[in-house]
């Protein structure tokens, strides 16, 4: 009986096969294009596809029936209602929400998305639709820190690819250990289970954790930045953007946003928020 023959036995064979596959995929990719859905496409389809978080209370979390709920979900419902189309909610993580938009899996990302230059290079943003303050938070027992330099030698958890990740990577001293997690759920779990004593996240998220787990209630250590949330859409989709902006403006004027803030944040919108 002959021995099973392995083709990819040698580096040369594996490299050749791998590069061949790589080249053919590149060739196919070059000949295709992933086009974004325009406002007309959405109206014709009769469905608005929105990426929302499911691991980021109070913006988006799940109830006992595992259905998403929160500020972002209500915002998506408001937009779909005003545009008179059905709503298709797609739950995403922080790390994969931009790829969802890039690959036209969704029309809008309403997922407490902050603005930064890296993102602005690949997607467009609407006007701000929710307030958000990023900060570094620690447990009561953790050593108090006044400023970014105090993070030297500390371990801090953050969600990969989030605005706080980018900001923290720039702010923290070289010998800070930054633990990046796939999604907010994992970051929060890492904090609650004591794997990290500091996290970088939003004020309302920290407040929510404190409400839930009083033993490891996160306390603000210092603020990173004021980073309101925007709705993300694919580049050049100007009609859709104009429509979304008009609806956000309307929501600010008629008190819709204020009531959402009361419902989910238990507080009024900040004055900076144009109301």
């Amino acid at each position: 009986m002959h021995k099973p023959q392995r083709i990819l036995k040698t580096f040369k064979g594996a490299l050749a096969s791998g590069l061949l596959v790589l080249a053919s995929i590149s060739a196919i990719a070059a000949s295709t294009s992933a086009l974004a859905s325009s406002l007309a496409d959405i109206e014709q389809r009769g469905t608005l596809r929105v990426a929302v978080p499911q691991d980021f209370p109070p913006f988006g979390s799940v109830g006992t029936d595992l259905q998403p709920q929160g500020y972002d979900i209500d915002m998506a419902e408001y937009l779909a209602e005003q545009m008179d189309v059905n709503l298709d909610l797609v739950t995403v993580t922080s790390a994969n929400r931009i790829p969802f938009l890039q690959t036209d899996k969704v029309d809008l990302v309403i997922s407490s998305l902050g603005k930064n230059p890296e993102r602005a290079a690949v997607i467009d943003f609407s006007e701000a639709y929710a307030p958000f303050f990023l900060g570094v938070f620690g447990t009561e027992q953790a050593e108090q820190i006044e400023e970014p330099a105090g993070l030297a030698g500390k371990t801090i958890g953050v969600t990969r690819g989030s605005v706080e990740d980018m900001e923290l990577t720039g702010l923290a001293p070289g010998d800070t250990t930054i633990k990046r997690f796939e999604d907010n759920a994992t970051t929060i779990s890492a904090f609650l289970s004591g794997q990290v004593d500091y996290i970088a996240t939003g004020n309302v998220v920290a407040a929510q954790i404190a409400e839930r787990e009083s033993q490891r209630a996160p306390k603000m250590v210092f603020q990173i930045k004021d980073s309101p949330c925007y709705i993300g859409l694919s580049q050049g989709n100007d009609e859709l953007k104009a429509k979304v902006n008009a609806l956000i403006e309307q929501a600010k004027q008629n008190g819709t946003l204020e009531s959402l803030s009361q419902k989910w944040f238990h507080t009024s919108l900040p004055e900076s928020f144009g109301s």
């Binding site: 499911q54 691991d55 799940v62 595992l66 739950t91 995403v92 796939e182 759920a185 779990s189 609650l192």
Partner: peptide, 22 residues
Amino acid sequence: SVIGFVELTKAGTMLNNAAFAP
């Protein structure tokens, strides 16, 4: 679960986020 398909493991991580009892 890593690409967001809600099956047993994903449901576990979602529940853990909401109920925190890892």
